[in-house]
């Protein structure tokens, strides 16, 4: 694989040991390694549709002793804002805490809930800071932040480098390639939020295919003017069950598409990520 070569050439040169030091060809290897940590995490996705956003994640169950339905991976930052992330969980917790501090600070100064792009400006800056000093390491997560503000619904993805992009559909974690290619097939312009939930369940289930030996729990949250009054909440249990059923029924017919998509996605993904 192309990527393996790139890493091999860097090992031992010393440029991969520290943040705040570029390699001669202008790369910060610590940031790229952080991305590797993300690539092993459970899949997270986000979908933006015209009447809201949906976040979903594949929560890998590492022990049968964990209480089902608890230990949530999707978190709420402010009433109107949700976050899901893949990668190192404690890094994610810290990331969410910072998002919450920024949101409360904004609200305390300006009275209104923080607009989503504004939060991303701030949080992007914060994440970027962790790539500039040799006493710290970058965040080992990619975060997907979704929410509703006065300008409608927003969906963003923040990377360990601190860069963030707005998306219609975002995916990260182990199954991101499959998820991305599935997301690309969605018609975001006329997707309504209830269908988006079903699609999210289906995509997470597909993305889990490669990781079948591990059990997972599906978490889905939404944020919609119509159904949650603009609040970020977990979807009601009936909707979750319905979505799961939809995903199961769909699984049979999707086999072929999925393999195709995977191949395509892999190529594309490597290009963008290693650039």
């Amino acid at each position: 694989m192309k990527s393996t070569n790139i890493y091999l050439t860097s090992i031992g040169t010393g440029y991969d040991l520290s943040n705040s030091v570029f390699s001669p060809d202008g790369r910060n290897f610590q940031v790229e390694y952080a991305m590797k940590a993300v690539e092993n995490g459970g899949t997270s996705i986000g979908i933006k549709c015209k009447d809201g956003i949906v976040l979903a994640c594949e929560k890998i169950i590492n022990s049968k002793l964990l209480v089902p339905g608890k230990n949530k991976r999707i978190q709420t930052v402010d009433r109107h804002l949700g976050v899901v992330y893949s990668g190192l969980l404690p890094d994610g917790r810290h990331f969410v805490n910072r998002c919450r501090e920024e949101s409360q600070s904004f609200k305390s100064i300006f009275k209104i809930p923080i607009p989503v792009p504004n939060l991303l400006d701030r949080i992007g800056l914060y994440v970027q800071n962790y790539t500039c000093y040799n006493s710290v390491r970058p965040f080992g997560i990619v975060g997907i932040i979704g929410g509703i503000d006065d300008n409608g619904s927003h969906l963003y993805m923040v990377e360990p480098s601190g860069s963030f992009w707005g998306y219609s559909g975002a995916a990260t974690g182990k199954g991101r390639q499959i998820a991305k290619s599935e997301l690309e097939k969605l018609k975001f312009d006329d997707l309504n939020i209830k269908d988006a939930i079903k699609q999210a369940a289906r995509i997470i289930s597909l993305a889990h295919e490669d990781n079948k030996d591990k059990d997972y729990e599906l978490e889905i949250s939404w944020c919609s003017k119509e159904f949650t009054n603009g609040k970020h909440e977990f979807i009601p249990i009936e909707l979750l069950e319905e979505a799961k059923k939809f995903a199961e029924e769909d699984e049979g017919d999707e086999d072929e598409d999925e393999e195709e998509g995977e191949g395509e996605g892999e190529g594309e993904g490597e290009d963008t990520e290693m650039n």
């Binding site: 608890k70 230990n71 949530k72 978190q75 709420t76 402010d78 009433r79």
Partner: peptide, 18 residues
Amino acid sequence: QRILDELEIQQEVYDNDG
């Protein structure tokens, strides 16, 4: 009013896992 709103968010919005 502001600190009560912050209290409400911290206690009811963040990770209120039942």
